[in-house]
Write a protein that binds this DNA or RNA. Structure first.
Lengths: 224, 224
DNA sequence: TTTTTTATGATAGTATTACTATTATTTAAA
DNA sequence: TTTAAATAATAGTAATACTATCATAAAAAA
């Protein structure tokens, strides 16, 4: 039995489904490399076309703009992360262990469970840390939210909120704690790598390990 | 006795000190209005010049680019916030009450203590919530950090970390908890206004009040 | 197999953005 | 009252974010 790794991404996000052609897949794959290398602000379709060996016009046939391409990439990531959460949790009954597993996934590079992962997970991880908030911190938030662009993220948030409630059925803020965990996992990873003084990471300490222990400590203090 | 409300902002941030002329002050004042209205991405020096009644070239004599103008605005905000924290805390000895005061400041529009505040505090507040992470989530983070661009933010983070340690001297992550509080205050305010399902805010509940109670609950569970 | 559709490539072009440079004019300081 | 500094006015460049057109290649339908 094989796991379905074509995590569906809402159609309002793309013009032509990039999964439907080799060019489409190359666009997404190279976009991940390029955004990782130059950052979202310096990333554009001209550079991407050069990398892919196609033209700007062809890329515009798949995505309306670079913002929606980033949304597409992040949604793929959130889908895959939720798949991994579901997969790793299915034989765990202890909600405390469930939460630890989730925190580990949130703070480490995602494992490539099968040979089927098309994208560079390590790059994706950095993109999620550095660029993910840029998809929602925009003036057009209400319009793009209506287009169900954040479904994957909300689904993941709900999944984690359910685990929180399993552990602490009376806790009043399961969704806020869940979204706080996700967002804090990103900004603490970013801070402990680039702005160490905003954290308590030791000079030689590994960033992922630090954030894992901080978040575990936080969550279990909150829910004890 | 008067309070010094010219919070100093590092010189590497501007070319000419905007506080040194009426044009400079207008540039900052109108920039705040414009960023509030159109959002950082749609904000540019051409539109700003039109609002101020000057030319693009003149604005470029004050700020190298819009990113550094945003940095300037945010640093003013962080300085003012730290001033308010210090001011409101000076007669409080109970660390628990101190922390509550800080959380209230983080989650509400800042008060205009004196008639001296030059900028629209309500707009500034929204800018901080929506745009502040964009100043550090950039590829150039390490270079701009060396230019001490984040001093004000780090100072505030340290101040809050000290209060955390007063309340819980053995807590291992005072700086991380402090930066988590600041960042979470922004994203939970944003989420409870625009992506409610990522929080547990009630339909008719006030966003600021909700985030205050959530963060107080969180912090005192962590530090009890 | 031929026709038709669809996808891509090649090329060009426009509007906007993010600047830089130059010169004239106004304002303030010496 | 001369000189210096700040600003306005104008122009221009390179890059970005697209849109449009047409030719060609590949795939699907007839």
């Amino acid at each position: 039995m094989e796991y379905q790794l074509n995590f569906s991404v809402n159609d309002t996000i793309y013009i032509r489904d990039p999964e439907s052609s080799e060019l489409g897949r190359q666009i997404v794959r190279k976009a991940i490399e390029l955004i990782y290398e130059v950052g979202y602000e310096h990333f554009n379709f001209k550079k991407l076309a050069l990398e892919v060996g196609t033209t700007e016009a062809s890329i515009y046939r798949y995505f309306k703009n670079k913002h929606l391409l980033l949304v597409y990439i992040l949604n793929w990531y959130w889908s895959y992360l939720e798949f991994l959460v579901m997969f790793q949790l299915k034989n765990i009954s202890d909600p405390q262990l469930k939460l630890k597993t989730v925190i580990h996934l949130l703070t480490h590079e995602l494992p490539e469970n099968t040979g089927k992962i098309k994208y560079n997970i390590s790059y994706l991880n950095q993109i999620v840390i550095t660029e993910s908030s840029k998809v929602y911190l925009v003036k057009e938030i209400n319009e793009i939210n209506q287009a169900q662009v954040f479904k994957q993220f909300k689904d993941l948030c709900n999944t984690i909120a359910d685990i929180i409630l399993e552990l602490a059925p009376d806790y009043q803020y399961p969704h806020s704690l869940s979204s706080t965990l996700i967002e804090t996992s990103h900004n603490q990873q970013f801070f402990s790598a680039h702005l160490k003084r905003l954290t308590d990471v030791k000079t030689d300490e590994d960033s992922s390990t630090y954030v894992t222990t901080y978040l575990e400590d936080l969550v279990f203090r909150v829910l004890r």
